[in-house]
Design a protein around this nucleic acid. Structure first.
Lengths: 274, 274
DNA sequence: CGTCAGAAAATAGTATTATCATATGATACG
DNA sequence: CGTATCATATGATAATACTATTTTCTGACG
C-alpha cells in the first residue's frame, strides 16, 4: 500500500566522484586528522579536477565544516560552527573516534526528549498515528530474536519505527527531526543492545506500556512509561561491548561499571555525578 | 576578554553568486513555491552560468532539500528528507510563511530541553561555565530596557547568551547544538517578547533563580526554575503581534475560502489542545 | 495478436580543461 | 609608517566530452 520510498536516501550520495571526496574529507575532519585551524588538502593528493574538488568543498561548507576565503584558502572551521545535527556529520562522527562518550550524549538526549514526546503523542495523536505505533509494536513482537533466530536487524528496524512513530505523532516537526537524527546514529548501538540475550524480550512489555498509555490518551502515564523504557536502555549502553569490529571484543568491566569513569576522549574533566 | 569570534558566520555566505542562488531557491522551497514533487528552475530564469547553478544545487542537496538524478533532473525532495535543523533551512523557513505554528513548535522544544539542560548544568558545570552564565546574567541586568531606553537588542543578546551558556555547561554537545539552532531561530521572537513593557524586568528574577540553583548545584531546583521561566515565555508567544512586516496579507478571497484551505504548513488537522 | 526482453536513443547530470576576474594577504618601496 | 604592488587562491564562465538512467523502439516468443 505504501510506496516504499526507496529507503529515503539517508545521507549525501557517495556515488559521484565529488560525493566520494565529500565523505573522505568529512571523515578526516570529524576524525580529527584535519584540525580546526588550517589546511584542507585542496589539491595535490586527490586525483580529481578542480571543479570536482570545488563542489565537494561547497557541500562541506554547507554543513559548516569548512570555510573558504580568497587567498587564505579553504580552512576547517572551529567545532562550534559544525552542523553536528547533520546526518552526514553525525555519521562521520561515529565512524571515527571512540564512540563511548558520543553514545552517552545521544542517550542523554533521548532521555530528555522521548518522554516528553510520548506525552505529546498521547495528547495529539490521530487515529492513523496510533495505528502506525501499534503496527510497529506488532512487528517487534513478530521479529523477536530468539536463541534460534539470531538476526536482530528486523527487530531493531521495528523498534526504531516504534519510536519514530511516537515522535511523529507528537505533531512537532522540529522534535521529530531531532529524534530522526538521533535515531539514525543510535541504530548501531540499538543492534548491540538487542543482541544481549533476553534484552529484546524484556523490553517488550515496556514498549507495550507506552503504547497503551498513548492509546488511552494519558500523557503523564505515557511519559512515565517511556522514561522507564529509555532509562533501561541508558543503563544498557554502558554494557555494550566496545568495538565489535575486528576481533577484540573483550567483555571487560565485569566488576563494576559504576566506578570505572574513564571518560574516553572528553577534553576536560567534568564533575560527572552519576 | 573574549575574541569576539567574527560573529561566527551563522549561515551559508550569500556574498558569492552561487550563495545568492542558494538562498533564493532555498527560500522558494521553504515558502512552498517549489513543491516537493518536481522541478527546480535549473536554468532559464537565473542569469548565471551553469557552474554557479551546479554549486548552488550541491549546497541544497547537502541540506537534503533537493535530489539530482540523471534524466529525471533536479527535484525537490519530500519534506521528510529536509534537514530542518540546518541553520539555513531554519532561517528560510521562518522567513516565509506564517510563523505562528513554527514558533509554537520551537517553544515546545524549549520547554522540553531547557529544564533538563539546566539540571545537567547544575550537575556538571565547571567554574568557567558558571562564570559565563553569571556574566550573561549581569549583562542582562545592565541592558535592561526601560521606558527611556527602547532598544531591546542588547538585552536579547544577553538573554540568548544566558541560555546558551547553560546549555553549554551541560557538557553534551548534541544538546548544545540543538539549542543553538533553536535559539538562532528564536532570536526574532525573543525581541518581540522583550518589547512587551515590563516583560524583561519581570523575567529577571526567574533567570536569577536558575543561576542560583546551578551555582548551588541543585539539579532539581534548577530544572524547576528553568521550567517556570520558560513556561512564562511560552504563554507570551501567543501574545506576540502577528507579522509586523509589510502589510500585504489581505483576506481578499472571501468567496472560496473553504476550498482555499491554506492550512499553513500542517498537512492534516490535529487535535491541538489549546 | 499481445506481451515481454533487450537494444538503442534521448536527456540531464558529471567531469575535465582552460581562461579570466577578484579579493586579500604579504612584501617592498617611498 | 603608510601605501603600492604582487602573488595566490578562490570565484566565475565557457566549451566539450562522458556517464548513467529513463524511455522508446523493435523483435522474438508465447
Amino acid at each position: 500500500m505504501m510506496v516504499r520510498a526507496r529507503a529515503s536516501q539517508a545521507g549525501y550520495p557517495s556515488r559521484n566522484l565529488h560525493g566520494q571526496i565529500v565523505h573522505a574529507i568529512g571523515r578526516q575532519i570529524l576524525r580529527g586528522d584535519l584540525r580546526p585551524g588550517e589546511p584542507v588538502p585542496v589539491q595535490r593528493d586527490l586525483p580529481a579536477s578542480r571543479t570536482a574538488l570545488r563542489e565537494a568543498i561547497k557541500v562541506l561548507a554547507a554543513k559548516g565544516l569548512v570555510e573558504t576565503r580568497p587567498k587564505t584558502g579553504t580552512r576547517v572551521r572551529t567545532r562550534e560552527a559544525w552542523n553536528l545535527l547533520d546526518p552526514d556529520v553525525l555519521a562521520w562522527r561515529q565512524a571515527g573516534a571512540p564512540p563511548r562518550p558520543f553514545l552517552r550524549s545521544l542517550t542523554e538526549v533521548r532521555n530528555i526528549i522521548e518522554p516528553a514526546a510520548a506525552a505529546l503523542a498521547a495528547k495529539r495523536a490521530r487515529a492513523a498515528d496510533i495505528a502506525a505505533i501499534e503496527r510497529a509494536y506488532r512487528d517487534m513482537e513478530a521479529a523477536m530474536p530468539t536463541e534460534a533466530v539470531a538476526d536482530v536487524t528486523p527487530f531493531v528496524e521495528a523498534d526504531t519505527r516504534f519510536h519514530a512513530a511516537i515522535l511523529q505523532a507528537g505533531g512537532n516537526d522540529i522534535l521529530e527531526q531531532m529524534s530522526r537524527v538521533v535515531y539514525a546514529a543510535l541504530r548501531v548501538s540499538l543492534e548491540a543492545t538487542s543482541r544481549i540475550p533476553g534484552s529484546a524480550r524484556a523490553s517488550l512489555p515496556r514498549h507495550r506500556a507506552v503504547l497503551d498509555a498513548i492509546r488511552a490518551r494519558k500523557p503523564r502515564r505515557a511519559a512515565e512509561a517511556m522514561q522507564r523504557l529509555v532509562h533501561r536502555i541508558a543503563r544498557k549502553v554502558d554494557v555494550i561491548p566496545r568495538r565489535v569490529g575486528r576481533g577484540n571484543l573483550r567483555h571487560v568491566e565485569t566488576k563494576d561499571t559504576k566506578s570505572k569513569r574513564r571518560n574516553d576522549s572528553t577534553v576536560k574533566p567534568r564533575p560527572t555525578s552519576s
